[in-house]
Simulated assay, not measured.
Amino acid sequence: MIAKEQGITGIQQRIGYQFANPDLLEKALTHSSAVSPGRRTERSYQRLEFLGDRVLGLVVADLLHRRLPKANEGELSRTLNTLVRKETCADVARTLNLGPALRLGESEARTGGAEKEAILADVCEAVIGAVYCDGGFDCAFELVERLFGGMIGAANAKRADAKTALQEWAQGRGLEPPDYTEVERSGPDHAPVFTIAVKVQGFAAENASGPSKKIAEHKSAEQFLIRENVWKPTS
């Protein structure tokens, strides 16, 4: 019980929200495999994940509408999809170290469920749903803005596709695929900053930083393409 309570307390500290009803957070961390079939709807994160997915989409859409006043509908949609996709949510769950706190059935735990991208993404959304249920929309908005807001500047359509563009550019010249290496991690656990270096055979490496490894990789790829005059800088 002590370890469980410490885990719940640690997660609340990392997400920056104190639950009035900690049972909601416990439910958000419970996979259906850990619950008897007759109680899965009631005691697993499935319903909270459904709710959190919608809250996340609404809050991110609101943030994009306010922060990107010159973006058209297509640009807003592409950026929204980048921010709410499974990979981004799973990255946030890893940043919050939610995996070790998950309640999993024996089989799911044995097959690495705590590290599976789909489960981590679902749990991230379930935690958002739990905060919404516990504290209302304002608290959920603050949580989403805290966890996802720092990614908005890098999550435009061009940056989201920079790695693909760089790989195609390298292959078109008969070069090996770009190599991405983490060179530094800084900042607190709840708001880390990753620095990634991208290397292409015969060219100097290019470094860039971001709130997740994927964002930093895309930014380093974009900066490489700009440096080599493949892409023009954004205005």
Rank of each mutant, 00 (worst) to 15 (best):
P192T: 04
P192F: 11
V193H: 08
V193Q: 10
V193G: 00
F194Y: 11
T195C: 14
T195D: 08
T195I: 13
I196A: 08
A197K: 13
V198L: 12
V198K: 14
V198I: 12
V198P: 14
K199L: 15
V200Y: 10
Q201M: 04
Q201Y: 06
G202D: 04
G202R: 09
G202F: 07
G202L: 06
G202H: 03
G202I: 10
F203T: 02
F203E: 01
A204V: 05
A204D: 12
A204F: 08
A204T: 07
A205G: 08
A205N: 10
E206G: 01
E206R: 04
N207K: 13
N207H: 13
N207V: 13
A208R: 03
A208F: 11
A208H: 11
S209L: 02
S209W: 01
S209I: 04
S209D: 03
G210H: 09
P211A: 00
S212R: 07
S212L: 03
K213Q: 10
K213G: 00
K213E: 05
I215L: 05
I215A: 08
A216W: 07
A216S: 07
A216K: 09
E217A: 10
E217H: 06
E217T: 03
E217P: 09
H218E: 06
H218I: 01
H218G: 14
K219V: 14
K219E: 15
K219N: 11
S220T: 09
S220F: 14
S220Y: 12
S220H: 09
A221N: 10
A221P: 12
A221E: 10
E222I: 03
E222G: 04
Q223E: 09
Q223K: 14
F224Y: 05
L225N: 03
L225Q: 02
I226R: 06
I226K: 06
I226T: 06
I226S: 02
R227L: 02
R227G: 06
E228T: 12
E228S: 03
E228V: 04
N229V: 00
N229R: 11
